[in-house]
Design a binder for these strands. Structure first.
Length: 407
RNA sequence: GGGGAGAUUCCAGAGUGGCCAAAUGGGACGGACUGUAACUCCGUUAGCGUAAGCUUUCGAAGGUUCGAAUCCUUCUCUCCCCA
């Protein structure tokens, strides 16, 4: 691939380059010094569940990796004790070192779905941050002013709206920046929400007398509910390890308005394929069709073509087909639910057995609201009893709970 | 260090002795409609009980009272102003 083609590929979907011609500059540098670039990606081991939002960044990293550049993953085990304040207004509980190890391992496993982990360098930042003494720490702190730190939107918002900001949170960007300095990063990747932290790294490197890293930020993928950002705490994620059926279903449930964004950021389609699908949307084709194609594509990336196809079939049968009998049910027996078959097994008790995580009060409300059907018929009285002779019985609870109960 | 304000159910935010499991809005969930989209409408939103009702909940711990989210004491945390 020639240089221009490389740049074009690497620029696709990127939202922010800092400085503007960062990429060209760094690539030229690599060429001149006859070496590959060091690309940094930081990871906070408090939240090891990767989702499609992370994948946007990881896919870009893969492109760099495929061009031979070195990916350095920083496991922020030290900084996890502080907690990245990005978008947060509450402090997080500290993690034990065992928990950090477990999380790091899960994280790396998930990374391998996208990156060739064997070619990545993995470093823990406690290695240098933990060893730092007070003199070095103070000297680090002296490199940045309060006004600079307060430029960060998040701190600014919290400050102006009277919310607490602890001092240790202010230090977080510096430590993350110091990481860049230690590993001599050429480029730091992240979502646009990491812009501040990443540019701090650039500054730290420069004040340490070396060349500052370039910052490459990918757009933030919005959550499946259409809210600003996909994040676990919002409960709007598509996890990379989600079951194919679930993954497909989640894609189908995104608002139509999000479809172009998902098409661009989450799929593997080529530029021309993407354009073709966008054209079809524009021409008024039912967005559902395009959404299915996106769903198929995404599930294929993280599972397989077959599983993606099966997921689509499942979806069509389970949710689009109106015939109750033809749906798939999870088979359970009364015995495994710990329920004996008796003269008067009440519906509420059966539901509690099937959905133990729901409270009885809540299940009762669901039944009364008409969300429970027995053999396809709504039953709205929680105390209804089920005759022993009526088993096996098919019970649906809410949109997604399909059970066939054997006696 | 001194002075002031505040902490309410998932979130925001009312409530200043009984009518408070706590207004209202948001979110979430469920129902109708549908393409598990959007829009719209309706319902639910502490737990347990078939029910009457009972239990726990308004930063924490004590106290006053027949009765406390509301009053008092101590404590914890936060914000603002002055130094």
């Amino acid at each position: 691939m020639d240089a221009t083609a490389q740049v074009q590929l690497l620029k696709e979907n990127v939202e922010i380059f800092l400085p503007d011609n960062a990429l060209e500059e760094k690539l030229a540098l690599a060429e001149k010094e006859n070496r590959k670039l060091i690309i940094k990606l930081g990871f906070d081991p408090t939240a090891p569940d990767l989702h499609l939002g992370h994948a946007v960044v990881l896919k870009k990293l893969r492109q760099f990796q495929e061009l031979g550049h070195t990916i350095v993953i920083i496991i922020g085990d030290f900084t996890a004790r502080i907690g990245d304040p990005t978008g947060k207004n509450k402090s997080r509980p500290p993690l034990s070192s065992e928990q950090v190890k477990v999380n790091a391992q899960t994280y790396v496993n998930q990374l391998s779905k996208i990156l060739d982990v064997s070619k990545c360098v993995i470093r823990y930042n406690s290695e240098w941050l933990g060893a730092m003494d007070m003199t070095a720490a103070i000297s680090l702190l002296s490199q940045v002013t309060l006004a600079q730190i307060m430029q960060r939107t998040d701190f600014n918002n919290r400050f102006t709206s009277g919310l607490p900001i602890s001092l240790h949170e202010l230090v977080y960007p510096l430590l993350q920046g110091f990481d860049s300095s230690v590993i001599h990063a050429d480029i730091e990747m992240g979502g646009t929400d990491q812009l501040f932290n990443c540019s701090m790294g650039r500054q730290m490197q420069e004040s340490a007398g070396s060349t500052g890293q370039a910052v490459v930020c990918m757009p933030l993928l919005r959550g499946i509910d259409g809210s600003a950002k996909m994040s676990k705490s919002e409960g709007n994620i598509v996890g990379l390890t989600d079951h194919p059926n679930e993954m497909f279903g989640k894609i189908m449930s995104i608002p139509d308005a999000l479809l172009p964004e998902y098409l661009h950021l989450t799929t593997d389609f080529s530029k021309s394929e993407k354009q073709e699908l966008l054209d079809r949307l524009q021409q008024g084709e039912n967005p559902m069709n395009i959404k299915k194609l996106v769903g198929l594509n995404v599930v294929t990336q993280y599972h397989s073509t077959d599983e993606a196809q099966q997921a689509q079939d499942f979806f069509q049968n389970q949710f689009q087909n109106k015939r109750f009998d033809e749906k798939e049910f999870i088979t359970v027996s009364l015995v495994t639910l710990g329920l004996g078959i008796s003269e008067n097994l009440r519906l509420i008790d059966l539901c509690k057995g099937l959905k133990p995580e729901e409270s009885r009060s809540n299940l009762k409300k669901l039944i009364e609201a008409g969300s429970v059907t027995v053999n396809g018929l709504k039953v709205t009285y929680a105390q209804s009893s089920l005759e022993p002779s009526s088993f096996p019985v098919k019970v649906r609870i809410g949109k997604r709970g399909f059970f066939e109960v054997l006696s």
